[in-house]
């Protein structure tokens, strides 16, 4: 079985063309990026606001919890039935899948943002206020920088799930790496199917590595590799050696923003 898979995977003919591996990877990344940008635009401001004001936390936590529980496949079907009559052209195939991915990505990102801000050392916050900063300044210059490790952890967790779940786009009639999984199954080519699965896993790993590099360059060195204030466990302690070991498939630690794929 393994030689078959490798044979399929490294056959140059499978890499080129509009339905080749290379363009499927680009499509896959495009869907994932689109969903992540939308999810971040919604979830980060919301999470920061909750963390900063302390208001709406209960509602947000519960909504996010419920959103996590929505099965992606069911939501996809629902969106297809509901949106196809409303959308023209190719967007009809893409939008339902993107919505599913956005719903999937919001909870971990938001959790990262609000637990990050909540976890900021009250001393730092007080000092900033004492220096005469306004609420907005405190948020921008103190809370957000301090919360970055957790914000990143949420975003990375979301990216992993989005990349793994973007295979569903193929179920709704678009491209991406899911095509190999679905098509492979339909033509009984298990090597193609397994190759698709492997490509998704490798892509997720590579993107996570890139994100860890970005995180390293963006997060203030003073914050170290992520002081784990575990949100739900409410514990302030050092946990995993770091969120940044080179081969770290960020499924982030403990009660912070551990999160799950929901494919």
């Amino acid at each position: 079985m393994i030689p078959n898979i490798l044979g399929w995977l490294f056959d140059p003919a499978h890499w080129s063309g509009s339905d080749g591996i290379a363009s499927r990877i680009v499509e896959h990344l495009w869907y994932s990026a689109l969903a992540m940008v939308l999810a971040c635009l919604i979830a980060i401001p919301a999470g920061l606001a909750i963390g900063h004001t302390g208001r709406g936390r209960f509602l947000a936590v519960n909504l996010a919890g419920a959103a996590r529980a929505i099965p992606s496949l069911g939501l996809l079907y629902l969106m297809v039935l509901w949106l196809f009559p409303k959308l023209a052209g190719d967007s009809a195939f893409l939008v339902p899948a993107i919505i599913v991915l956005v719903v999937l990505a919001i909870p971990p990102i938001m959790a990262g943002a609000y637990s990050g801000v909540e976890g900021v050392d009250p001393g730092a916050r007080d000092a900033a206020k004492g220096m005469g900063m306004t609420g907005m300044q405190v948020l921008r210059q103190v809370e957000v920088p301090c919360a970055l490790p957790l914000i990143f952890s949420g975003v990375r967790s979301a990216i992993l799930q989005v990349i793994a779940t973007a295979t569903l786009a193929a179920v709704a009639g678009t491209g991406g790496l899911g095509r190999f999984i679905i098509d492979g199954q339909k033509v009984h080519e298990f090597a193609q199917m397994a190759s698709g699965a492997i490509l998704v896993a490798v892509l997720a790993l590579v993107i996570d590595l890139l994100m860890s590099l970005v995180q390293r360059s963006v997060v203030s060195p003073g914050l170290g590799a992520g002081p784990a204030t575990s949100g739900r466990a409410g514990r302030r302690s050092r946990t995993a050696p770091s969120g940044n070991t080179p081969v770290d498939v960020e499924i982030d630690s403990s009660g912070r923003t551990v999160d799950a794929p929901a494919r």
């Binding site: 779940t165 999984i181 998704v200 896993a201 770290d248 794929p261």
Partner: peptide
Amino acid sequence: GLLYTIPSLA
């Protein structure tokens, strides 16, 4: 952690 990225469909 890597197991986590294998699509369930496959």
